[in-house]
């Protein structure tokens, strides 16, 4: 009877992630030694990607190359398929056709940050972060790494707190620590700051940029906030109707300041494409 146990849970929550995110975890000791060095992001190569749900195409033949360590922001109207693209890359969905190479080939780990923190309410903050390490290493070494990751996101000394007592921004920081504690080569962020208030958002954006610069993973950020995309990303992809409508390099020096003319010009380019305006017409 127990042979098929969990099948319900499995089918109810989509497919299990691709092997690369689970089975190939590098032993913890190795991770801590190699971790601080930069530039170990994984490169990604997508060819002819198609995904249909119930005959309804969501991704319609998409080609994309992401060099290692690049910060890519994916923007688009809701329902354009940007979240689906992210889930496909992480192996949370299987492509209808086409291929995604890179994450698995390099044997790196990929981590996903959801829109909600998705912390286990019955585990302490440190234990929640330790979820990111799976079973690698001993209990004490996992706890040590978790506390270190927590201090990196500015949550020193909150390791033994319950998630219920944290604020929304703090919870999302814990989720960030959980994703980063295993030093992933690819970090996928699905509108992770969408539920936060404006001020917390800006400080979180700074935090995401800083850890990305420190750790050098490849980052793919799905967002509906164009200015957030331009503030953080090396490259902004605009997805429209299941295809890439705009592939824009953002060549501004970091840390970026909103409101500069160059920033505003890029923002306008993206918004104009998003709403279908031709070159000269302004909003």
């Amino acid at each position: 009877m127990f042979a098929d146990a969990m099948t319900f849970i499995e089918t109810a929550t989509r497919r299990p992630p691709r092997e690369l995110t689970t089975g190939t975890a590098v032993p913890f000791e190795v991770l801590t030694e190699v971790a601080p060095t930069r530039g170990q992001g994984s490169a990604l190569s997508i060819r002819g990607l198609v995904k249909t749900f119930d005959q309804e195409p969501v991704i319609k033949g998409l080609d994309l190359d992401i060099p290692a360590g690049q910060f890519v922001a994916v923007v688009g109207k809701s329902g354009c398929g940007k979240s689906t693209l992210l889930r496909l890359i992480l192996g949370l969905e299987t492509p209808t056709s086409g291929s995604i190479e890179g994450v698995g080939a390099t044997g790196g780990t990929a981590r996903f940050i959801f829109q909600e923190p998705r912390l286990l309410p019955w585990a302490t903050v440190a234990d929640n972060v330790a979820v990111g390490l799976g079973r690698s290493g001993s209990r004490t070494s996992r706890r040590k790494a978790a506390l270190k990751a927590l201090s990196e996101v500015g949550l020193d000394g909150r390791g033994d707190a319950w998630p219920a007592v944290l604020s929304g921004g703090q919870r999302q920081r814990v989720a960030l620590a959980r994703a980063l504690v295993s030093h992933p080569r690819l970090l996928a962020l699905d509108e992770p700051l969408g539920a936060l208030d404006a001020l917390t958002r800006i400080s979180m954006q700074g935090l995401v940029e800083r850890v990305w610069q420190d750790q050098g993973f490849t980052a793919i950020l799905v967002t509906h906030d164009v200015s957030e995309a331009i503030a953080l990303a090396d490259r902004v992809l605009l997805i429209d109707n299941g295809r890439i409508a705009l592939d824009l390099a953002v060549d501004l020096p970091r840390p970026r300041r909103r409101g500069t003319p160059a920033f505003a010009a890029l923002e306008k380019t993206v918004l104009d494409t998003l709403f279908g305006f031709e070159g000269g017409e302004a909003i």
Binding site: I9, P16, P17, W122
Partner: peptide
Amino acid sequence: PQLVEMGRTYGMNNWDLFRRVILP
């Protein structure tokens, strides 16, 4: 189900998922 999905993406096997997510 969001927590179950989180557990899966973080590489929990069925037993871990049961012990750390479903039972609690």
